[in-house]
Structure formats: C-alpha cells, structure tokens
Design a protein around this nucleic acid. Sequence first.
RNA 1: GCGGAUAUGGCGGAAUUGGCAGACGCGCCGGAUUUAGGAUCCGGUGGGCAACCCCCGUGCAGGUUCGACCCCUGUUAUCCGCACCA
Length: 802
Amino acid sequence: MKNYDFKAVEKKWQQKWEETGVFHAKQDFTLPKYYCLVEFPYPSGQGLHVGHPRSYTALDTVARKKRLQGYNVLYPMGWDAFGLPTENYAIKNHIHPEIVTKQNVARFKQQLQSLGFSFDWSREVNTTDPAYYKWTQWIFLQLYKKGLAYKKEMSVNWCTSCKCVLANEEVVNGVCERCGSEVIHKVKSQWMLKITAYAQRLIDDLDDLNFIDRVKVQQKNWIGRSTGAQVTFTATTGDPIEVYTTRPDTLFGATYMVVSPEHPLLEKWADKLTNMDEIRAYQNEAAHKSDFERTEVNKDKTGVELLGVRAINPVNGEEIPIFISDYVLVSYGTGAIMAVPAHDTRDWEFAKKFDLPIVEVVRGGNVEKEAFTDCATGVMVNSGFLTGLSVEDAKVKIIDWLTENGKGFKKVNYKLRDWVFSRQRYWGEPIPIIECPKCGFVPLDESELPLRLPEVESYEPTDTGESPLAKLTDWVNVKCPCCGGDAKRETDTMPQWAGSSWYFLRYCDPHNNDALASKEALEYWTPVDWYNGGMEHTTLHLLYSRFWHKFLYDIGVVPTKEPYAKRTSHGMILGENGEKMSKSRGNVVNPDEIVDQYGADTMRLYEMFIGDFEKAAPWNSDSIKGCKRFLDRTWGLQNIAKDGGIRAELEAEIHRTIQKVGEDIDNLKANTAIAALMTLLNRFYDSGAVTREELRTFVLLLNPFAPHLTEELWEVMDFGGVVTSQSWPQFDPAKCKDDSVEIAVQVCGKIKARLTVPADVSSADAIALAKADEKVAEAIDGKTIVKELYVPGRLVNIVVKM
RNA sequence: GCGGAUAUGGCGGAAUUGGCAGACGCGCCGGAUUUAGGAUCCGGUGGGCAACCCCCGUGCAGGUUCGACCCCUGUUAUCCGCACCA
C-alpha cells in the first residue's frame, strides 16, 4: 500500500472533476431534478473563514448523494460582490473596486475549489457583472411600473460612518448592522420598495413551507401583524384624531391621548396651543435623539400636555387631555394612541408620572398598583353598554358599535415598514431612473439596460448625503427620454441586498441575454428544493428575496409563489475558547492551514462531525486528528481486503448503516452518519478483514463526506469507473434486523440481568426466559408478581409486591 | 418586558421519541513498538467504594408511569431574536 498523499490525490481528483464536468447540471429537463442552494458569499479581502465550509459541505453531501441517487442536481455558486467593504478598500488603496472584486473572487474560488465542493462552476454568477445587474435593474423597473418602487421624502436611518442610509432591517439595537456605528435620523428623499403590500402573503405563505421553525417565527415577529381597530376621537377644534388600538374593548378606560412629537396635527393647532414653545422644545429634543436613546428600555416617560386643545372620547363623550410623548412612534399605526392606563403598562407609567386618572374597565387586577394587562379572560366593568361582557365579546361589540356610528372600524396593522432602497455609495447597481423637471420620474427604456456604473475619479462618500456619482456631471446630465428636455439621472445606487434577491433564479439559466432566465429553465428548476444559510439573513435577504419572488410571480416571470421549498440554518463555528471567531480575539482558524495540514477531506469530515449542525460549535484542533485518523484507517482497509460478498455476520449492520447514513444526510445529522461509519469501520478491523463488496459499499457511503479519498480508494481497489458515476447503495429493511437481540431484564424497573433472545421471541417465552435467570429468580422469590411485560427487542419488566 | 430555544462525563456530542443513559470522536490512564519524541497498535475510562453482583447519576424541586434525559407543574441559568409596535 502506498501512503496516502492527500495533497497529490486531492489535486488529481479536483482536476479530473473540472475536466470532465461531472458536476455540471444537465440541460435535460426530463430527468428528476434537485436544486441545492447555499448563500453565495461576499468575496471579502480576508478570504474564506471556517464558517463558510460548514454550510457548503453540508449541502455538498446532499448534492453528491442525490446525484448518486439519479437526480439531476443543480448546486451552484457565485459572488454577492457589490458592497461597502470593497468600496472602502478601494478608496483606501486607490484601486478600482472592480479590480479588488476580481482579486477577491479569484482567491475565494481557489479556496472553495481546494475543498472539493461539487459546484457547477459553469453557472457561476457575479452580481457586479453588467450582464447580471442588467436584470437586477430590469426587476427594479418592473417594480416601478407596478407602483411598488417610489421615491419619498422621509426621515431615514443614516449611518454616520458608512455615510449612507440604511433599511430598518439593517439597524440593530440602534447601530449599523455592518459597522456598529451610531445611526441617526436624516430627512432625505429615498427610493422605497413597497414590501408592506406583501406583508400578509409573506406571513400566510410560510405555512406551506418547510422552513425551520425559528425562521418562520422570526419572520412573523418582524412583520409583526396585529389586529385591532382604528378609532376616531374628535378634538375640541373639531379635527378628527385617528388612533389604532388592539384593545378597543377598553375604550371606556381611555383617560387621555398621546400623539407622537412629529404628528402633523400639532402644526395645524399651532395658533390654538397656548404652550407651543414648550411643545416645540420637546419636539426638538426628540428629533435630536438617536434611535438608540429613543428606544432605550426602562427609560422614564417624558411628555408635554397640549394646553388649549382637548379630545372627546367617542364612546362616552368625555373630554380628555392630549399629550405629546416620544413613546408614541410616528411610523406605527396612526402616530397617535388612546391611553388606557389601567390596562397598558406604558400608559400606566405615564399616568402615574403625570397624575392622570386610572379607570379600571376589566375586573381582576389591582390597577392602582400596576397595569392589569393579562386580562383576556376578564369581565368588563365601568364600560357602559359593554359592562358585564367578556373581553372577547366586548371586542366584537365595540367594533360593531364603532362601525355603525362611523367612529371606527376593524383594522390590521404591521410593524413591517417599506424597504429603504437607495444608497449614497458608488459600488452598487445604478438605479435606472431619470428625473425630469417636466415629466417627473422617467424609467430608462429596457433596451438601455444595463445602465453601467461610470468610471469615477473618487469613490469617497460625501457628508452631504449625495452619492459619489452625483459629481459626474457628464453622466448625470441627460436629455429626458420623454420630452427631450434637460434632466438628471438618479445618482443613488441599490443596496447590497438587491443582487442577492434573485440570484438563485439566474443560476437556472445564467447566460441568457433575453430574460433573467428562460421560462423552461425556471419551470424545471424552481423552486429551490433546499436552501441553507445563516440566521442573520432571516429578516434581511431571506425576507427580501421572498418579496421579490412573489412580485415576479405576480407579473408572470416565475412559476412559483415561493422561491425556496425548504430552509435550514447552520450554527456558527466558534473559536477554541468558545467565543465568536474574530481577528480582535485572535481565535480565527484559517481553513487554508487546515487543508494544508490535514487535507480537504479531513476538513470536510471534521466540519460535519463537529456537532449538531444547527447549533454553534467551538473549534477543537485535537478533534480534527480523530477525523484524520479515521480517514487513514479507511485508506488502510485495502490491506485487509479480500474477495467476497457481504458476510452474513455483518449483513444487518451494513444494511442499517446504509439506512442511517442516507437518512442522516437528508436530516442534517451528518455527525451521527459519520459516527455510524466509524462504528462500521471498527467492526471491519475487529473482524480482521473487509470483503470487496463490503468495502465497495463503505466507500460509496463515505464519498459525500470525503470525495477525494474515496475516489482514490475506488481506483486502487479497481472497482471500475469512478465513484461519481455509481449508484447510491440500497438497503433492505428486512435485512436490517439481527436474528437475536440482547434484552434487559428488570425487576420493578431495576436491571437485574441481560439476556440474548431470538428477535422474534414471543412475549410469554421472553418472560419465561427472564424468570429462569438466576438473579431474576432470586429477586422475585417469595414475592407476588403484580405485572409482567415484554417490550419487543428491548426489555422484560417484572413488577412484584412484598 | 414579549417571543423562541437550550441545559447529559474532563470536552464535542449520541440515545430508535416513554424502554439497557453516555453511541462515535477527542482527551486522559495503562501497555506494546521506538534510542527518544512523534506516529501507530492493544486495553481501560460517568461518579462513589479497597472491591462488588452494591449505591448515586441527564441544571434544580415535585408529579404522572411498571418504567422518565424524554410527558406534566414549578424553578434556576445560559443563548438567540424583537423591543415604548399601542
């Protein structure tokens, strides 16, 4: 036996796979298909880290197994290459971002190829390629034409460090999701996408999808649907004040109102409010607070009462005070609330601080001590015609009353906001819109796509909030396609999430110049059968791409309502100290070094063996050795190989292993699949031999995890052909069972003995055999047997009484 | 605060979903081989006890059951998501 030279062997097979194109998806649409997808990476300057291969290897094992099972598998890879880090690097080093991207992509690609993933490289896509972003822009134009893209002056999140606006989804705890810098509010005119129009469908359609639960829960929470009522209060000025509430049943307990500091009625009432100075001061203060300050928890309630205008409760005609307070948000509901301090914690705190009346309307709590909110099963009190009803009935009755009297109606609200879609940066897709003083916004004609990014001298972002593109007067100043007059191009670009919102469609037909992909290809390949990716994208990329896909479905471009049939998510790989891997913590493991030291197969195997796929797992350099040892022992099997079929004494175990490995790969339980293969390997060594047929099966089962070594072993053993053109082993359920089994014998639940019995032994015989055992006989001697039971193949339990 | 999850040896993790807890791997201990180290091979390894066929043991306290890591009630800790969303 030759020593296993992983470096030479891995290179050899990687070249062979590339030359023969064995992993290219076939263009034959009559074959059963399987579309496996992993999130395409952002090609950063740091190169791959050990987290990337966890996801890629897991679906690579699925893809490889599915191919052996006869499926036409699409397992593609590409580059999500627009974005800030590249642009910032380019600025710092005075290199064009396109060149930086090219270098990073080359590095990533080389790293991925060194790990032996079975990607179809003939379908590689790159979001920064004009032939690609032509279609990103095309989709934007379709959204615009359907009224789902609009430009609006509004208060937006502004990252002080990126010098760029952010979507709500990109603001985490009041700071920028990417760089962690402070986010402030800025009033700017921004392109928006109307994702809210799809809020209900984005919730409803989750039901039919095979997504892991936490993804569904997180998306539902983010969309934040609630049902309640919109109620019209009337101000003493005669103006209606609309509020939204989920508790219309508590309307009789509304003792004051609160409007947000930005509420438009305040300007309207400016001349009637006697304390306008105080109000303006409060508004000003609120406007200068960052998101972080404004949403800080357990913060004291603040506010100012409006003097000169009061409100009338529509249900009882009572006049109540109105306040402004920053605990009421402009962006949610109507920007105004009715306050029911007895049954809402925030209102209660506010009422206590401003000494406002607290009227109990649902019995059961002590509203002087705290707000009684957990009152869904309570009974109404102090509530006029609602008194005596259950909360549930009161809700129905009050909504009927409001509707009949024109004072309100049933209403559904969402926390989801429209998607802020423009970015004031260079390295993104140009938005293909021209603004004409006469004609307004004019979309570029589709024949002019792609609208290429122009060359610029400097990519520096500006403090004024303008895109670097704005400085290119030659590019900006154009003639209006509509009237021929002077007009200007939109200079903002699209966010990084644009290109990734539809990339999985492009893989189906990546070189198509007439459509984002052909109808036939989409019909055949979509939806993605299995998509694995990070939890951090749940309310970003995953939600955005579902939205775009639904839109494309509505306009007849794609044949399915949903892009992904199944979504799973991998846990993070942590550093050896159990902390998140990061440069600053100095615990980063470089995958190149692992491949260099142990080989790609060991790296792959270890990443799959490291633990529960869905959970975070700390890296352990000692444990890798165990995987290397296993592969070396597998290679060594050729020394004890002999002719012959599967031996009778190993038949059941081999069939069970085939079953287990297959099922475990499908269920993301690679760790136990590998454990089963290790057990089987130990059995071969224990028996001193492995037959050719046994080895053949073993090699096939191991192939998805360790593709290089198994190909080489296949070749050395002269099994014929290559592994990639074989069939996945079949198991026979009838052969998975042993003829005899070891069972435990318990007396009163305590184990007294272990017996080997025939697998098909009858209950009576098993119990008789158990009783015949010396220790069991001793334990039950002289006692009354209360109960005897036999769990087939497991145990006998004899229950006795003294 | 709300929502979701998790808790098993020295470590990563198994457990056919109510039926022999600790599979598999790491680490550790002992042995073989080696000039030595490394590598490899063999044996052992949840805890207690001198030892056992004994006792204890799946975060903690109860409960249901012939039988509970698994189901129920309560509780603690950790992680994640959302967070003044009316």
